[in-house]
C-alpha cells in the first residue's frame, strides 16, 4: 500500500472520471490518472508507464525505470502483495451486487 507499482496505460476508460485501464504485470484495472494528466489530451497517455499508488497514477516513468522498479518490488515480495490485493478487490466488487 505504501510503495507504488509500475504499470502501462493501455486505454482510456472514462474521461469524466479520469479513469484509464492500466496493465500491472498482466492484471488490468481502472486507475485514476488525474495526478499525471497535465494539459494534453488523455489519449496522449496511452502507452506511457506510470507508478500506481492504490489506484492512482502518481508519476510518469520510462519503461526502463518501470522494469527496474518492478524487479525490485518483486524481490521484496511487495509486487506480489499489491497484485494480490488488486485481484481480491476486483473479485469482491464482482461478486457483491
Amino acid at each position: 500500500m505504501c510503495l507504488g507499482i509500475p504499470g502501462k496505460i493501455v486505454a482510456i476508460e472514462d474521461e469524466a472520471r479520469h479513469l484509464a485501464t492500466v496493465d500491472v504485470s498482466g492484471v488490468r484495472r481502472a486507475v485514476n490518472v488525474l495526478p499525471v494528466e497535465g494539459n494534453g489530451p488523455l489519449e496522449d497517455l496511452i502507452g506511457r508507464y506510470v507508478l500506481v499508488h492504490v489506484g492512482f497514477a502518481m508519476s510518469l516513468i520510462d519503461e526502463a525505470e518501470a522494469k527496474r522498479t518492478l524487479e525490485a518490488l518483486n524481490e521484496l515480495g511487495e509486487a506480489q502483495e499489491e497484485i494480490a490485493a488488486m485481484r481480491a478487490s476486483q473479485d469482491a466488487l464482482g461478486t457483491q451486487p
Binding site: C2, R29, N32, V54, G55, F56, S89, L93, Q96, P97
Partner: peptide, 29 residues
C-alpha cells in the same frame, strides 16, 4: 478489503442504502 479508495466509492454507488466508510490510512503516498 479494498485495494483502492476508488473501489470503496464503487461499493458506495452499488449500495445506496448502506453507509460506506473508507479507512483513510497512510502517509503522503
Amino acid at each position: 478489503m479494498v485495494y483502492s479508495p476508488l473501489d470503496a466509492l464503487e461499493i458506495a454507488r452499488r449500495n445506496p442504502t448502506r453507509e460506506v466508510v473508507f479507512f483513510g490510512l497512510g502517509f503522503e503516498t
